[in-house]
């Protein structure tokens, strides 16, 4: 028989951890959506990076098994690499001209 105090403590910990868990999953969903959008935008410009695809696929797979913290980490990496690729696309829009032999 668990004493009342300990039982309340265990219940409290369980409840608070599950609420953090739910928050992680909402955050993961939001990040995955953002990363997917950023990836689609840079892919349309022909400058997508392979790691973005990999991170995004990992994040989606982790989300399906509710590994939301891992999903958040990978979705954030997908978003960061997609944003970096977009900066590359913007820069290369004109920078390539300086490399043409004259």
């Amino acid at each position: 028989m668990i004493p009342n105090f300990t039982g309340t403590l265990v219940l409290g910990v369980l409840l608070s951890s599950s609420s953090v868990f739910a928050g992680d999953c909402a955050e993961a969903d939001s990040l995955i959506q953002k990363a997917q959008g950023a990836y689609a935008a840079v892919d349309a410009r022909g400058f997508a990076w392979v790691p973005t695809e990999t991170y995004l696929a990992d994040a989606k797979a982790e989300r399906t098994v509710d590994a939301c913290l891992d999903a958040m980490i990978h979705a954030q990496r997908a978003l960061d690499t997609a944003n970096a690729a977009m900066k590359q696309a913007d820069y290369e829009n004109t920078a390539w001209q300086s490399r043409v032999p004259k």
């Binding site: 022909g46 400058f47 990076w49 392979v50 790691p51 690499t81 970096a84 690729a85 590359q88 290369e92 920078a95 390539w96 001209q97 490399r99 043409v100 032999p101």
Partner: peptide
């Protein structure tokens, strides 16, 4: 095609011309 050849791409930031010209 010409722009593609000289544009840097990918996480390693290489153009076709990086390796086969420069």
């Amino acid at each position: 095609g010409k722009a593609f050849y000289y544009q840097r791409r990918g996480q390693l930031n290489f153009a076709c011309s990086s390796c086969h010209l420069e």
